[in-house]
Amino acid sequence: MDNYAVRKLKEKIFLSFAWLALLLTAIILVVILGQVVYNGASAINIGFFFERPAPPGEPGGGIGPGIQGTVVLMALASLMGIPLGIIAGIYMAEFSESKLASAIRYFNDVLTEFPSIVIGVFAYTSIVIFMRTFSAIAGAFALAIIMIPIVARTTEESVKLVPASIREAALALGIPRWKTTLRIVLSTARQGTITGIMLSLGRIAGETAPLIVTVGFSFFYFGGFDKPVAALPLYIYTFAISPFESWRSLAWGSALVLVIMVLVVNIVVRTITRQKYR
């Protein structure tokens, strides 16, 4: 049967293409990670984590200020982004039928996908121009805007999973509804919410574009919330496009640190959600 042979051939072509696509994707991942580890590891020593970057062209130096700055920025962003995100998520879950909630849900998803550089420019126009200086606060503000929709969405999902019986039990004890929600419902939905927070931290740890236009650039350790601050992803960018071999090496080292942070977050999240939803 001729036609049968043709069909079988098409099937073979399809299967090889599909598996090739997957293989290609996996190879890209392995190559990127492999290169980051290979090039990054040679840049890393004890001093790498604490020293300031060496002046251009000079060997050695570290990315201490970048690590510190990123931690400061993430903490500051969390302070603003997490509470707002959680409450927005609670609202979406508890009032899921209301028109406002569906509008919020819709724009929340739009915001999730929004270009981070535009968010950075927004932070610039609203904070940097006002304060007349690049600052950690402006950067954290931009990062917080990126966090909110992620935290909100995961909080909503996990609050919705809390069984009605738990709320009713709390209400029956005479606990007011708002307390029930904040204490009992939220603590029951704790795991999902934490997952969302971790995901959002993993995302903002590597965000570079909004920082370029908000925090300036610094070779120094943190000196105040209203001052320019160093950041790991900015170090990667600046050092990578520099012509100096020693700085490029610092860029790879920073990339390794960043990638490890992000991967650890994701593997932990993945393990948690797998146990839960299996």
Partner: peptide, 21 residues
């Protein structure tokens, strides 16, 4: 999971890899 890890890698790391490799 492997495919999703690809989404986790920060943009600037892609840039670094794209630039040099």
């Amino acid at each position: 999971f492997l495919v999703e890890l690809l989404a986790a890698i920060p943009s600037v790391v892609y840039g670094l890899w794209g630039l040099f490799t």
